[in-house]
Measured scan of single mutants.
Amino acid sequence: MAAGGDHGSPDSYRSPLASRYASPEMCFVFSDRYKFRTWRQLWLWLAEAEQTLGLPITDEQIQEMKSNLENIDFKMAAEEEKRLRHDVMAHVHTFGHCCPKAAGIIHLGATSCYVGDNTDLIILRNALDLLLPKLARVISRLADFAKERASLPTLGFTHFQPAQLTTVGKRCCLWIQDLCMDLQNLKRVRDDLRFRGVKGTTGTQASFLQLFEGDDHKVEQLDKMVTEKAGFKRAFIITGQTYTRKVDIEVLSVLASLGASVHKICTDIRLLANLKEMEEPFEKQQIGSSAMPYKRNPMRSERCCSLARHLMTLVMDPLQTASVQWFERTLDDSANRRICLAEAFLTADTILNTLQNISEGLVVYPKVIERRIRQELPFMATENIIMAMVKAGGSRQDCHEKIRVLSQQAASVVKQEGGDNDLIERIQVDAYFSPIHSQLDHLLDPSSFTGRASQQVQRFLEEEVYPLLKPYESVMKVKAELCL
């Protein structure tokens, strides 16, 4: 049975990233139509530049190519590739079939990587351009969430054990800070992308030097003109047959890092959902379990974690691919890159769409948070109580021993009897502590235990987050809708 299948058929496997999760716009960027249309555009740009620099290419040939950029006979191309065992030459023939007058000058002087690699770089750039505003929107939604809850005390956790208090907004800023680093890295790697350009079979530009009869300047002009037509500021000066596969490492490393950030955020949300302090959106008709109707599973956060793990592992592909590119190139890269580049971007696209949807509907339960604080705060307040007693004339050592005994009794009630923490009640009825009984409410005010959390939130948002989001103001209103 021949390899390949009808990918629109229910009898043929289709990647869930495309069929179930990723956005239509990201799927289109990695589609065959987008790819092969870009090949034709690159052939047109090459012909236009070659004509401008004096090669015998007519206006009629150029116009014929322009008129057929979208006229792609995919069936013919597939048949040609089956016959020739070469995808680029299959599309040269297919393009030439609908451009008979231009057929002889299509791909003039070029090698397969002229269309293959340059198209990949265009796709990487455009895919990054799709991700950047999506990530900015996630940051914006979380920034709104953090600002609104900047002063809401909550129990902090280290080692997932109760620690000092923080605020809900401050905790959210930990998430935002990681995503801001990801946004900066995505922008950097996007701006650092260079075009492969017009380089020939081993990167020496020998074929173009021959076409222009040894004119170095025209060869350099050709490279520059096509690079500018493709919208790049610069091209690699040095290439082998391909652009260095280190570029793929750079791009997928940034995406993998984004995956790590999203995994951490969504894990926190899942843990908070278990504590009943916070939940992701839950639709009115949504079913959490087929057997347990009360369940409210954090399905979206779980999906993000599941896909983020996949995204983090994909960076190993370009690392290994770059390491086995012998001399000017081997074909070890080809099949692998067809999979890992598309999957990385479709996965990143999915987790950003999902995280935006989550961040637009996060639900906080202040009463649950308050109750958990009441359970733990008495123990945390013991040092403040000791200091207040010393100020009232008591002995630190005597007070410490009193607190120690009462704390152990209260802990026994919590752990052995399943009761509430009654340390404060014990202190309130103990005559030894009568000098500070009137101060206990103040000493137990949760806001006095959150330090500068709310001020940190305000400063972080104003100095770091809002300036970073400013270039994306025009796209901030787009909502994230999930079908599944």
Rank of each mutant, 00 (worst) to 15 (best):
S301Q: 06
S19Y: 14
L444V: 07
T38A: 08
S31C: 08
G419P: 02
G240L: 01
R196P: 01
F282C: 05
K170G: 03
V88K: 01
L179F: 13
N118Y: 00
L174R: 03
C98T: 12
K187I: 13
R149M: 14
Q210I: 10
K367L: 04
L469S: 08
A110Q: 01
G259C: 05
L186G: 10
Q177Y: 14
Q177R: 04
K147Q: 14
P435T: 07
E383V: 03
S395K: 09
T204M: 05
V465R: 03
K199I: 00
L341S: 15
L443K: 03
A260T: 01
M380Q: 07
Y13R: 10
K218P: 12
L69G: 07
P446I: 05
G393P: 04
F345W: 03
I62F: 06
Y114E: 06
V315P: 11
Q51A: 09
G451I: 05
R404V: 08
I386C: 10
C98A: 11
D182Y: 04
G393I: 06
E220I: 12
L423Q: 05
S301W: 01
P162T: 05
L193K: 03
L468G: 09
L362C: 09
G288C: 06
K295S: 03
L55F: 03
D191Y: 09
N71Q: 08
E148P: 06
I339S: 13
S412V: 15
T450N: 04
G394S: 12
Q456A: 09
E64I: 07
M181T: 12
R37E: 11
K367Q: 12
K402T: 05
V390R: 02
I358Q: 05
L352G: 06
I106G: 01
D441A: 11
A381C: 07
A392R: 11
V138R: 02
R270N: 03
D182C: 00
S67N: 13
I57T: 04
S407L: 03
C304T: 12
Q63H: 09
G8A: 15
T58S: 14
E48M: 09
T321S: 10
E213N: 12
G418M: 05
C180G: 12
E464L: 06
L174V: 14
E328D: 06
M181A: 10
Q63P: 05
T227G: 10
S306Y: 04
W326T: 05
L482K: 06
A453D: 05
I385F: 09
Q408F: 09
R270S: 04
R396T: 04
F160G: 07
Q210F: 02
C483S: 15
K82P: 14
S31M: 03
A235R: 09
K233T: 10
V457T: 12
A291C: 04
A78N: 13
K246N: 03
V363L: 15
